[in-house]
C-alpha cells in the first residue's frame, strides 16, 4: 500500500522533472545564440535533473542505491558549471554574444 503510494508520488516528481527537461530542450531550440542557449541547457542540468533524482529517491527510500542517486546529483551539479564555463570561455574567442543593445546602457552600472 504504502510502497504503491510512494511509487505514485515519486512518479509524479520524476514526471515534473522530465517536464522541466522538456522546457529546457525547447529553450535550446528557441533561443537565438549559444550563450542564451546555455541558460536553457542549465535548466535541464539543474532543476530537471534534481527533480528526477528526487523522484527516484522517493521511490527508492533509504538504501545504498539512494546514496548512489545522491552521488549522481552531486557529480552533475559539480561538473556542469565547470563544463559550461569551459564552453563559454572557448566560445567567447570566436563568437560575439548578441546583446540587447538598445537598453544596455541603462543596465550597465557606472
Amino acid at each position: 500500500m504504502s510502497s504503491v503510494f510512494l511509487l505514485w508520488v515519486g512518479g509524479a516528481i520524476t514526471l515534473s522533472g522530465a517536464v522541466f527537461c522538456l522546457i529546457g530542450a525547447l529553450g535550446l531550440l528557441r533561443l537565438p545564440d549559444v550563450y542564451a542557449r546555455m541558460h536553457a541547457a542549465s535548466v535541464v542540468d539543474t532543476l530537471g535533473m534534481l527533480l528526477l533524482v528526487l523522484g527516484m529517491l522517493v521511490i527508492e527510500g533509504f538504501s545504498q542505491n539512494a546514496l548512489k542517486l545522491l552521488m549522481i546529483a552531486v557529480f552533475v551539479l559539480f561538473t556542469t558549471p565547470v563544463a559550461a564555463h569551459a564552453l563559454s570561455r572557448a566560445a567567447l574567442r570566436e563568437i560575439e554574444p548578441q546583446l540587447d543593445s538598445k537598453k544596455q546602457d541603462a543596465a550597465e552600472p557606472p
Binding site: 505514485w8 512518479g11 520524476t14 514526471l15 522530465a18 517536464v19
Partner: peptide, 8 residues
C-alpha cells in the same frame, strides 16, 4: 507515471 517520464 514512470513510463510517461521515460517517454518525456
Amino acid at each position: 507515471l514512470l513510463v510517461a517520464t521515460t517517454l518525456a
